[in-house]
């Protein structure tokens, strides 16, 4: 069952430090070519750990389309 929310990275703010990668319990986040973090939205359950950890405030949680 898909979660109601997922993490979304605001690339302009991301500094690609990798803090989010370390805390993701499902390994749903990676750093794309050293440019920015990228979230595998299919894997992400929207727990928000990455958003809490991100020092740049570049991650927020978004509601999935169609989620109640």
């Amino acid at each position: 069952m898909a979660s109601k929310r997922f993490a979304r990275v605001e690339a302009r703010r991301c500094v690609a430090c990798g803090c989010c990668v370390k805390v993701c319990p499902l390994s749903a986040v990676g750093v794309w070519r050293g440019v920015t973090a990228r979230v595998d939205t299919d894997r992400c359950v929207g727990c928000g750990r990455c958003a809490k950890e991100c020092p740049a405030g570049a991650i927020d949680l978004k509601d999935r389309e169609g989620a109640a």
């Binding site: 500094v15 690609a16 430090c17 803090c19 050293g34 440019v35 950890e53 991100c54 020092p55 740049a56």
Partner: peptide, 17 residues
């Protein structure tokens, strides 16, 4: 602020990015 707030404006991080 946050533990790794330095990373946000670290010159080495900015340069490597």
């Amino acid at each position: 602020f946050k533990p790794r707030s330095w990373c946000v404006f670290c010159p080495m991080g900015t340069m490597t990015q």
